[in-house]
Every structure is written in C-alpha cells, then in structure tokens.
Design a protein around this nucleic acid. Sequence first.
DNA 1: TCCTTTTAGATGCAATTGCATGTAAATATG
DNA 2: CATATTTACATGCAATTGCATCTAAAAGGA
Lengths: 144, 144
Amino acid sequence: MTMPSETAVKTWINLARAYGTAMTEINEALAANGLPPLIWYDILLELERAGDDGLRPYELEHALLLKQYRVSRLVDRIARDGYLRRQSCDDDRRGKRLVITDEGRALRRSMWQIYGAKIHALVGHKLSDAQSRKLAALLAELTG
Amino acid sequence: MTMPSETAVKTWINLARAYGTAMTEINEALAANGLPPLIWYDILLELERAGDDGLRPYELEHALLLKQYRVSRLVDRIARDGYLRRQSCDDDRRGKRLVITDEGRALRRSMWQIYGAKIHALVGHKLSDAQSRKLAALLAELTG
DNA sequence: TCCTTTTAGATGCAATTGCATGTAAATATG
DNA sequence: CATATTTACATGCAATTGCATCTAAAAGGA
C-alpha cells in the first residue's frame, strides 16, 4: 500500500479536472443541439466501423469497457429510436447482431459536428501539435 | 466549427481512456472495501480543509464543479450517515454550513488508504517524476 | 447422451442523476 | 418603504445506472 508522491497526486487531479471539464462541455453542447449523450456516438462509431455484419453486444461491451447491463439498455434505447437494428445471429441463437442504420450514420455525423468542434476547441486549440503528441504519449503510458 | 486534427483526436481518446480506466479501478477498489464512492472523498476533503466553519453548499458546488441539486442530495446522504453535520448559518438564514464530523475525518482517512494506493499504482508507478510533472503541466494547459 | 458449467443477453428493483420547479430569504430598484 | 429580482437550497418526478438474478443456448465432461 505505497502512498503516492505529491507529483502523482497533482497529475491525477489535473487529469480528472481536464477530463471532467471537457466531458461536461461536450455533453452540454450535444444537449444544447438536441443530440443524445456522447456514449451514443461511441456506440454508433463502433457499429459503423464494424461494417455490414455489425457487432455482438459483448463485443461492444469489451470495445468500450461498458458493463453488460448498460450495453443492453443503451442498445434498447438506440434501437427504439431507429439508429440501429438487432439482427438475429445465425451461428449463436443466444446472440444478437447490432447493425447501424442509415439514420444512425446520419446521427453520428451530426454528433461529430459538435463533438469534433469541441475536441478542437478543448485540445487542438490549446496545445501545439508537438505538445499534443507528447500528451497523448504520456497518457498512453498510463493505460498500458 | 473547425474540425480537430488527428493528433487532437488521438490525445482526447487517450485522455478519456486513461481517466475512465483509472476511475473505474478506484471506485471498484473503494466498493470492494465497503467504502462509498470517490465523490464522498472529494466532499469530505473540502470540508476538512475548510476547518471549523465548514463550507456553504454553494461553495462546495463551485469548488467541485457539481450541479446544485447533486450537492444537495450528496450532502443529504453523507449527513444521514453521520459524516457531516448541517449547521444553521447566522448571517444568511437561507443557508447552511456543512461541517465535517470526527467520523467524517476517519472515513476520509480510510478512503485515502485505498485511493492513494491507486493513485500510486495508476500514475506514480507508471511514470518517472519528471514525466509525471510534464504530464501535469500539459493537462493544466487544457484546463487553463 | 445426460448433466454441469459457462456464456450471451435481458430484466426487476433499488439507488442515483438530471430536470424543472418550489420556497424562503437576501438584495436591488423605484 | 414596497415591490421585483436574484440567490440559496430543497424536492417531485422522470431517466439512467447499478446490482442481482433470470432464461436460454453453447460448451465441456463423465
């Protein structure tokens, strides 16, 4: 149970603050434009990248580090609003395949207008490209 | 509506991932030890630092960037469990003063055993002191 | 094959969050 | 002073999350 250095604490505090303020701004901007929360974007992007076969819910769960029940509920709502459809799965009758719809692709693009602009304003605009690369590399060390 | 560079996007993704995985680990470790969520720690720490006069709810709101109603409910629960008390406020009869109790100080220390160890494992242990300082400085650029 | 274990996903119910609004006191304005 | 506005905090209600559990199907073993 080694306790952290002052430096480590300061770094963690700054990380939490940077993430929290950015995420709040992003979600507020999405809501202000009548768009759903950011997690919908992440899901739609994964499905769009997955192509015509879509993804299984458990694949989404692992890709986005979400709890199983949360995927289940989010997928419910996104499907209810017509942005994805659940296909039955040939080779595993327990499972579903989640496939993005045209409306889903359009929603993802709409969300990107807001989200992308915020990433630019909150990250791209505040650091040089070199600083940003350095920051990305240091953050990658934490995850790895 | 300038769109972000690839670098900025990569940096934001890494930031979100680093925060998300760390926060999940911290809250899971707290829960595994029968302790409340991290936000209780933040509140108790603010109150402990504030000293005998405590803080007004709106001060907590600003210090921790929380919504007013969320402060109200969190304070309810923390008070219900005896970790803070609400004093009436002499100079403003609308207001309350929130003061940490001895039990609250003890809880904060218990939480720190877990939280601090995680900060060390997740940040301190993965970067040199110089890298950590660099990371803290770059993150501070984002907030400022 | 029959039985046990594991995996995929859904869901009932409690706790928490978010939104909108309410109440009361402080402050500003005429 | 009288009235309007703002500030501090609480709360009813809907949406979301978290936990535990359930069903069904797949996989593994005797």
